[in-house]
Amino acid sequence: MTLEELSARQRAFSEARAWGPWHTPKNLVMALTGEVGELTELFQWLTPEEAATAAEDPALRPRIDDELADVLLYLVRLADVLGVDLIEAANAKIDRNETRFPPGVGRTALEK
């Protein structure tokens, strides 16, 4: 499934439930933030080593999957409502970052 197909499916889901009046950019950003918070909560007290292997934990993996899906779905819906092409925006951002962060330059060199 492409990002466009996912967006169309999410739009149809919303329209079938007449959620349009509540899917304002402000509300979608707030919902997105809440879902990022729920994802953050899953990792909050893990050590870096535990966090690196969290997706291997059979009890934690389904929760991680659900929260990542929620974040993606709200982000895709927000982009759809705002008319933003996420692939185009992401590629443009990477292009800008390639200038800002040239290869071979470590973080400490950029902080100077």
Rank of each mutant, 00 (worst) to 15 (best):
E50N: 04
W19E: 08
R107Q: 09
D80P: 01
T33H: 12
E88Q: 08
T108S: 08
T53C: 01
A8P: 00
A55P: 01
D57P: 03
N27S: 09
T33E: 12
R17F: 01
T24D: 02
W22P: 00
L110H: 15
V76C: 02
N91E: 15
L82C: 04
V81W: 03
P21W: 05
D85I: 14
A54V: 05
V29Y: 09
K26L: 13
P58N: 08
D80C: 02
A52P: 01
G83S: 13
S7Q: 15
L82P: 02
V84P: 04
E35T: 13
T108H: 02
L82R: 13
A12E: 07
F13T: 06
A54G: 06
P103I: 06
R61S: 11
L28H: 06
P103S: 14
E50F: 04
P62N: 11
T33L: 06
I64T: 03
R100Q: 07
N91H: 11
A16S: 09
E67I: 00
P58S: 11
L42I: 09
P62S: 12
T40K: 03
Y74A: 03
N91Y: 07
L28T: 06
G106L: 14
N97F: 07
G83K: 13
M30C: 03
A59T: 11
W45P: 00
K26Q: 13
E111D: 01
A55K: 01
F43M: 08
F101D: 00
L28M: 05
S14A: 15
V29C: 10
A90W: 12
D85E: 12
L68R: 11
V71S: 12
W22H: 10
D70T: 02
D80V: 00
F43H: 07
E15G: 01
R77D: 13
A55L: 04
D57R: 07
L6F: 01
L82Y: 01
R77S: 14
G34W: 02
P62W: 05
E41W: 07
A55R: 07
S7L: 07
L110E: 08
A109Q: 13
P103E: 15
V29I: 10
P48D: 09
T2A: 07
T99Q: 09
W19N: 04
W19H: 03
E41G: 02
V36D: 00
E5K: 08
L73Y: 14
T53W: 02
A79S: 08
L42Y: 04
A31M: 10
S7F: 03
E4T: 09
H23P: 00
A18D: 05
E41K: 08
A18R: 14
